[in-house]
Design a binder for these strands. Structure first.
Lengths: 173, 173, 173, 173
DNA sequence: TTTT
DNA sequence: TTTT
């Protein structure tokens, strides 16, 4: 059984970091991937692909990426279903990102992490990480004592490759 | 922009061949891909991934594959939206199969193509193709004069790689 | 930076398990992948792709797979160079398998692990693992006290996803 | 049989366009892909992956990309062997690029195609193509009457997906 | 040095 | 609405 996806495209919105009840960081986002061919009207269309990232990847997305950022995703397709508001079963499919690559040139990224609330002039990153999310995993404090982050009830059971670069502190299992 | 998917899994149903108004063969099917890890209850779950194949790939699926068959898919994620019956916009994502590999051992496949209606004892394939769909493209007659095949209104705009191994006869553009 | 490979093909030989000086299991093997197209002489050629697997994957390959077995590989391309016997620099590229899928139907696999030395009639697996390597990681004893396994000097620096399903015992770092 | 590779990395040199005896454009190049993990000395290494592109892709590489350019490759691994100068068989593996994506921001690319011979100040592209190689196939004149381009004896039998976006003029078969 |  |  193999399930592998690679995407390169652009974020359709500023990513928004949330946390599960267990405090695990999670970001849902959409990647727009322009098709390499045109339709019968000669137009270039795009696919808008729902993705989810967990933990460090989620934090990096929220801290460093913005609407329009070019990203590379290596992950797998995940399907699930839940009860809709109207009582009907809703089926959804999304890409779980094992890794997220930041493909913007550094200059386009700004010199500081982006904090969700505009913090462009801030001289300190909101979490105590390094300033370089490009490829090298970097440490960040778990949000244990943050008063009002957003909780997510979704179970954060993540990648087949597991929570490899995460300190054990923020793992709920 | 890159959009690449590789899947290996099993068909959840016998594939059913349809045709667009232009006579282009199309098969929609679901591939069950077992996850390589277990959930917190220790169970192996699966992802049920919607796929679509066109032309020769669609015919091969319908002629040679059945519920439970192991297949390899190389394709791309495609998203689209349409008006639901209740007037609400429905978003869907599916994998467009550029190529479909038949991974069952030959013995498991039977000696003849499968015609949709059980035709196991038939001495002739329903369409005039060769008997070997494994990897080598094989010719098959377009369904021009078949009286009551199923039509599909969906626009058959296909793969970025295009109708490469298809005789020009069955191309609507 | 993205580096992703997916292969489905057949082993050209019985895989042979070796160990690094630190006792880490490693198997090098070649996967023959038939091309989906023919050359100008109308022949189907194949690519013979060098691969390497570490730890549990290496053990599973050696215990359960044989020449001709159909496998799925999810991994990355790795290049390296070393001094050849003639003093010239030799460049090599191989696929590091993050995961190895066993795509043979169970019947084709036999009921017991394969021990390298023909052990078809053996009633016990050579290592104390479960009998099912298909997807679920299974325990096996590290070869600590085995007197004469083969050593490999190659540094076993493994997958980008890391030694996830390995007991810390057999990790050299 | 599946053989799929996706790479995102940087060109190690300015790509150089050549032609087969049949006049088919071909470019060989190396992509440096930084690993996402560090070795035991804490250093980030890279893989240097040999690639080859044909026809339009080859022309685009030569015209628009330079040493250091960020590219995305979607292709397959190809192995081959030939007689070395010392009479010994040499085995080689390279990635055949089905598609090449140009991931540099437009500003980094310059406003004109790059002609191999420094033509930065040139007001006309060397071949009569459009100025935008980003995703949309663009026309270019075949080098029919160019007196002294470089020939390559290698057989240009290309991708499994075939010469889809190539005018029939420059196809040798 | 190659597999079905 | 799911496969082995």
């Amino acid at each position: 059984m193999i399930n592998r996806v690679v995407l390169v495209g652009r974020l359709t919105k500023d990513p928004e970091l949330r946390y599960t009840p267990n405090g695990v960081p999670v970001t849902r986002f959409t990647v727009a991937v322009n098709r390499t061919f045109t339709n019968q009207q000669g137009e270039r269309e795009a696919d808008f692909i729902s993705c989810v990232a967990w933990r460090k990847q989620a934090e990096n997305l929220a801290n460093y990426m913005r609407k329009g950022s070019l990203v590379g995703i290596d992950g797998r397709i995940q399907t699930s279903s839940f009860e809709g508001q109207d009582g009907k079963r809703v089926y959804m499919t999304e890409v779980v990102a094992d890794s997220v690559q930041f493909l913007e040139p550094r200059s386009a990224q700004g010199q500081q992490p982006y904090g969700g609330q505009p913090s462009y002039g801030a001289s300190q990153p909101p979490y105590g990480g390094t300033q370089d999310p490009f490829g090298v995993p970097f440490p960040s404090q778990p949000p244990q004592n943050q008063p009002n982050y957003t909780r997510v009830d979704e179970d954060p059971f993540a990648s087949s490759k597991g929570p490899i670069e995460v300190s054990e502190d923020d793992l709920p299992f």
